[in-house]
Amino acid sequence: MQTARASARKRLLTTAAFIAAGGLVLTACSSGEDSSSEPTNNSVEGNQSEGDTVVIGFSGPAADHGWLGAINSAALAEAEKYPDIDLRVAEGTNDANLQISQVEQFINDRVDAIVLLPTDGAALTDVATRAMEAGIPVVNVDREFSSPFAARTTVLGDNYGMGVSAGTYVCEQVGDQPDAVVAEVAGIDSLPLTQDRSQGFKDALESCGLDVTNRVAADFTVQGGEAAASQLLSAAPEIDALWNHDDDQGIGVLAAIDAAGRDEFIMVGGAGSANAMREIQSGEGVLQATIIYPHTQAADGIRLARLLVQDKAMSDLVEIEVPNRVVLNAPVVTSENVEQFLPTAFES
Rank of each mutant, 00 (worst) to 15 (best):
Gly261Phe: 12
Lys10Thr: 10
Asn94Val: 06
Glu339Met: 11
Gly121Gln: 06
Pro331Cys: 15
Ile302Pro: 02
Thr27Lys: 05
Ala21His: 03
Ala204Pro: 01
Ala150Lys: 07
Val174His: 11
Asp52Lys: 15
Gln177Lys: 08
Thr14Pro: 00
Lys10Trp: 09
Asp52Glu: 15
Val55Asp: 10
Gln223Thr: 12
Ser273Gly: 10
Phe58His: 02
Asp300Ala: 15
Gly269Ala: 14
Pro323Cys: 09
Asn94Glu: 07
Val309Lys: 07
Ile239Trp: 04
Gln310Glu: 03
Asp211Trp: 04
Glu38His: 11
Ala241Phe: 14
Ala255Phe: 08
Glu50Tyr: 13
Gly46Val: 08
Val44Leu: 10
Thr93Phe: 07
Asn275Phe: 07
Asp158Glu: 09
Thr194Phe: 03
Ala298Asp: 03
Ile19Gly: 10
Pro83Arg: 02
Ala313Thr: 01
Arg278His: 06
Arg88Thr: 00
Thr15Asn: 10
Ser37Asn: 07
His245Ile: 10
Asn140Lys: 01
Asp300Phe: 12
Ala313Tyr: 00
Asp64Glu: 06
His245Gly: 11
Val54Tyr: 10
Glu319Pro: 01
Ala96Asp: 04
Ser101Glu: 04
Asp219His: 12
Leu26Ile: 08
Leu328Pro: 00
Ala166Ser: 14
Ala255His: 02
Gly60Gln: 14
Thr129Tyr: 13
Leu242Met: 14
Glu33Thr: 12
Ser49Leu: 11
Gly157Leu: 11
Glu133Trp: 08
Gln281Met: 13
Ala345Thr: 01
Gly135Thr: 03
Leu98Gln: 03
Glu144Trp: 03
Gly167Thr: 12
Gly200Ala: 13
Asp179Ser: 15
Ala128Asn: 02
Leu287Ser: 01
Asp109Arg: 03
Arg152Thr: 08
Val222Gly: 14
His65Lys: 02
Glu206Tyr: 08
Ala77Cys: 12
Leu156Pro: 00
Asn140Cys: 08
Ile19Asp: 05
Gly23Ser: 15
Asn47Lys: 05
Glu133Leu: 11
Thr53Trp: 02
Asn140His: 01
Pro343Gln: 10
Val164His: 08
Arg197Asn: 04
Ala70Gln: 08
Arg197Gly: 02
Lys81Met: 06
Asn47His: 12
Ala241Asp: 08
Gln297Phe: 03
Ala256Leu: 04
Ile136Gln: 06
Phe265Gln: 06
Gly225Thr: 01
Leu242Asn: 02
Ala299Cys: 09
Gly261Ile: 14
Ala17Pro: 00
Ala271Asn: 12
Ala241Arg: 11
Gly121His: 06
Pro137Leu: 14
Leu116Val: 14
Asn329Ala: 15
Asn337Arg: 00
Phe265Leu: 07
Thr221Ile: 07
Glu184Ser: 15
Tyr160Met: 04
Ala305Cys: 05
Gly121Met: 10
